[in-house]
Design a protein around this nucleic acid. Structure first.
Length: 591
RNA sequence: GGUCUCGUAGCUCAGUUGGAUAGAGCAUCAGAUUUCUAAUCUGACGGUCGUGGGUUCGAGCCCCGCCGAGAUCACCA
């Protein structure tokens, strides 16, 4: 049940009974702040025109009416125009028993939503920026599932183009036939190594040509390796067997590498698209746009759309030689997906550097008359910056995804070893827990920040394991599970126990927080924000830790109270687990 | 230059459609363990919410100017 909605209705009835008809939008119910007594608060200021009384008098009158007419309301107080309403313990006890195993799974909506994320280039390994993308995409997909949508997780692999040819060429020229097997390097790292190698030789050649008297622009154009790479791209497009074979071989290495990284990150996809298959899509749309008069052809044969009336620029859609550009492809794939997958919504998890691209994409689609253009969302996330600014591959400041993951797991292992808590674990169990905790720290660190905002990562200060962190939440879960294990060992039955005579304020507070979970899931879904879930789960864990500190569960002598506390703890653990699952974070049974 | 985003404690971040005395964590300092896991808990310190106006009963949030940071405006993807 939605308590705020319930109280809004009741308060509207109260105002209507006391003062006559009122616009329900003016009846504002919100949670009571911690420093005041009460559960929910009615703000009376918007109602003063209706009541024609002072704020306090209005609040008092409504309070009297609610206390007399609504059985769930156990009391009220008035402070400076705010009416704080308290609900009865019996009401909260009923809400408590509502909390089921699948709490936080919202009813099915019948909508199909595609979430595209990750979308890597196959010329270099994944880095910290990709980690944010992958974690966000996966989590948002899980959150949308919990909101009752059918979700398709999609990955569009950028596996063709000049940048791929650069790695291929450099490998051909300088590797001596090195393979992942012969070098022991992960496939994506090996290919990335030759992408860097290309750049080194390219730069050297530019320098030489400039020393021989060419201008910088000419040198960049005429450098032999660049010409060779471009030649290779033409051969690839012509399906030259040798080039095509090399391309398949090297991309295969990269996919093996990516697969390992995805597995370590715990992300997956329902569909993988390859740009080599889709880059010709969209050309049909060009004809359609020309027919509708939305696009215009120039004398050189290139096709454009003029978006200056919308405050944007002119945008190219087809080159003079008839080849398509990024925008054309994206228009094509979007159209294809909505048709083939019968999508209701499409979410692109792509960095905010592409805000303009998606603005233009949506605008063109709506100009072409596709109503579903409005159902495209660009989930535009902020960059991850280092203390010295942006990551730059040239300056070697890129934080590699695989390295970071390994570091986190290793740190978690050292932390566990120093406490001695895993001493009686098998090596396998210890590995498992270190992995969960290390990844939990990394994932929570990234996901707790509002996706839209630029965030800072300081490698030197390494990610925390105390305070507002993943491990803090995991630890709370592990402690609860430990109590429940001990209860089971002691043969304590708590599931079907009678309700206790009364509840502590801390217990009611926990129930209130638990009851919020479905609304939090809904809010996270509306805002595409894992951070909303993170903040909620952290607060819940913190509240429980305070309660745990002050009140013993297993040593409570009153059996009904003890049973209730065990139930409460078990529900807290379950909601923590569910919430963390929406973030893609596992919670251990012990740590 | 045009468009867009951001600016909250020393640092990293929260702050619901505008509501009460702006909150956490880290760091610093002081405490708590004969106890169900101290990766925990309690307390202290720390703020002209970039800045100047405006709207409102009420502004961190809405509007305008300015300062500062970033992104983007490719026949790259």
């Amino acid at each position: 049940m939605n308590i705020e909605k319930f109280l809004t209705e009741k308060a509207t009835q109260a105002v209507t009974a006391l003062y006559g008809a009122v616009d329900p939008a003016l009846v504002q119910i919100q949670k009571t702040r911690k420093e005041f007594v009460g559960d929910y608060t009615l703000v009376t200021f918007p109602l003063l025109k209706t009541s024609r009384l002072s704020p306090d008098a209005t609040a008092e009158a409504i309070g009297v009416w609610l206390a007399a007419n609504v059985t769930e309301v156990s009391g009220y107080n008035v402070i400076k125009g705010f009416l704080n309403i308290s609900l009865a313990d019996s009401f909260w006890a009923a809400r408590f028993s509502d909390i089921s195993a699948d709490y936080g799974r919202l009813p099915a909506t019948g909508r199909t939503v595609m979430v595209e994320y990750s979308s890597p280039n196959t010329n270099k390994p994944l880095h910290l920026g990709h980690i944010r993308n992958n974690l966000l995409g996966y989590s948002v997909a899980e959150i949308l599932k919990a909101n009752g949508h059918r979700v398709i997780k999609a990955n569009l692999v950028n596996d063709r183009g000049i940048h791929i040819c650069k790695s291929m060429l450099a490998w051909q020229l300088y590797s001596g036939g090195e393979t992942p097997e012969s070098s022991g390097l992960k496939g994506d790292h090996l290919v990335g190594k030759y992408y860097v190698e290309f750049d080194k030789h390219y730069k050297a050649e530019i320098k030489e040509l400039m020393a021989a008297g060419q201008s910088e622009d000419d040198a960049k154009r005429n450098a032999p390796v660049m010409l060779a790479a471009q030649d290779m791209l033409r051969k690839w497009e012509a399906h030259d067997p040798e080039v095509y074979g090399l391309w398949q071989k090297m991309n295969g290495w990269v996919y093996d590498g990516f697969e390992q990284t995805y597995k370590a990150l715990g992300v997956d996809f329902d569909k993988t698209y390859y740009e080599s298959n889709t880059y010709l899509l969209g050309k049909a749309l060009v004809g359609e746009g020309l027919e509708k008069g939305v696009f215009k052809k120039r004398d050189d044969g290139s096709v454009w759309i003029d978006l200056t009336p919308d405050g944007l620029d002119e945008k190219l859609l087809l080159r003079g030689d008839g080849t398509s550009v990024y925008m054309t492809q994206d228009l094509g794939t979007a159209t294809q997906r909505f048709a083939e997958e019968k999508l209701d919504d499409m979410i692109y998890v792509v960095g905010n550097e592409q805000n303009y691209h998606f603005q233009v994409l949506k605008l063109i689609l709506s100009k072409l008359g596709y109503a579903w253009a409005d159902n495209i969302t660009h989930l535009s996330y902020g960059m991850v910056e280092l203390p010295e600014g942006k990551m730059k591959s040239r300056e070697g400041t890129v934080v590699d995804a695989d390295d970071l993951v390994a570091d986190m797991v290793e740190t978690a292992r050292e932390m566990s070893a120093s406490t001695g808590k895993l001493d009686d674990c098998t090596p396998d169990q210890a590995d498992q827990i270190s992995r969960m905790v290390g990844m939990g720290a990394l994932k929570y660190f990234i996901l707790k920040v509002d996706p839209r905002k630029t965030m800072l990562f300081d490698p030197k200060e390494s990610i925390d394991f105390n305070g507002n962190t993943g491990p803090f939440i995991q630890y709370t879960h592990a402690r609860i599970r430990s109590i429940l294990r001990k209860a089971a060992e002691g043969g304590i039955e708590y599931l079907n126990a009678p309700a206790p005579a009364s509840y502590l304020p801390e217990e009611v507070a926990l129930v209130k927080q638990l009851v919020d979970f479905p609304a939090v899931v809904a809010q996270a879904g509306e805002q595409f924000s894992p951070a909303v879930i993170g903040a909620y789960v952290y607060e819940l864990a913190k509240t429980f830790n305070g309660y745990y500190h002050d009140h013993s569960i297993l040593k409570e002598p009153d059996q009904a109270v003890r049973a209730m506390r065990l139930q409460l703890a078990s529900k807290v653990a379950r909601v923590i687990r569910s919430g963390m699952q929406l973030l893609g974070i596992e919670v251990p049974e012990r740590m």
